[in-house]
């Protein structure tokens, strides 16, 4: 119940944040502009709209997750608002989970709004909508959950600026981890071991990317999809658990 109150308060905080609306407007503009860009291409305009639309949703969602996420905890400490929460009968992990759930809910609403924007464009342009699109959107949302947890983890022990940089780096690396493995395969045993270690430690965000499937009408099996969702959930739980441990030991000076 306490977690839920904090989550609702966080959601309210997000709703009254101008940054969120700016990003959302830009995302919708990008999705809309895919119509204009598709005019420049020959024949492939369905693909372009889908690719650009999903890309925009992903990109702006990640921006929201990072830039709102890093402020979740560090802003509370900076403004000393956390003092009044922690001195109430609220465990620190409850505070952390509440903040996380609040932003996740914000992201969910945002994803829905952006998806509706994309569907509107698709409908207006007579692009057939397939089930795979929704699977792709669902996995984009799972990726947001992982990124938010990464931002939250960093913001429990470092400043807002550094967490933004670290999380952004994590996002970029997370989409390139497959290259680490390919790279390692060509090296000696020790280097391969190290690169494999990093590969398994870092989140493999490319797994959440189904844009190719949507655009090229590829299928994905239900069990594969399930596995990816479980992977995302486990990774998120791991990040939140680590964040709670760090947060529990922290002095609020």
């Amino acid at each position: 119940m306490k977690i839920l109150s904090i989550a609702l308060n966080t959601f309210r905080e997000n709703l009254r944040d101008k940054l969120l609306y700016n990003l959302l407007v830009f995302a919708l503009l990008m999705i809309g502009s895919s119509v204009l860009l598709s005019r420049l291409t020959l024949g492939e305009f369905h693909r372009l709209i889908l690719d650009l639309g999903l890309g925009s949703i992903n990109f702006f969602g990640v921006l929201i997750a990072i830039f709102v996420g890093i402020g979740l905890v560090s802003k509370e400490i900076e403004k000393k608002t956390i003092y009044t929460i922690v001195s109430k009968p609220v465990a620190r992990y409850q505070f952390l989970l509440g903040k996380y759930l609040g932003l996740t809910f914000t992201l969910f609403v945002n994803t829905v709004v952006m998806a509706l924007g994309l569907l509107l464009v698709l409908y207006a342009q007579d692009v057939p909508v397939e089930g795979m699109l929704f699977k792709a959107l669902a996995l984009i949302f799972v990726e947001f959950m992982v990124i938010t947890a990464v931002a939250l983890l960093f913001s429990t022990f470092t400043s807002a600026t550094l967490s933004a940089i670290f999380t952004l780096a994590m996002y970029v690396i997370g989409h390139l981890t497959a290259d680490l493995k390919t790279f390692g395969a060509k090296m000696d045993d020790l280097s391969r071991g190290i690169l494999n270690g990093i590969y398994y430690l870092l989140p493999n965000l490319e797994r959440f990317n189904l844009k190719g499937h949507v655009v090229h009408h590829l299928e994905i099996s239900g069990s594969d999809l399930m596995l990816i969702v479980v992977y995302g959930a486990t990774y998120t739980a791991f990040l939140l658990f680590t964040a709670s441990l760090i947060f529990h030991r922290r002095d609020f000076r």
Partner: peptide, 13 residues
């Protein structure tokens, strides 16, 4: 009950 020093609180509420 606790009141911290020069608190800011949630100014959007």
């Amino acid at each position: 009950g606790f009141l911290p020093e020069s608190p800011y609180f949630y100014d959007y509420l």
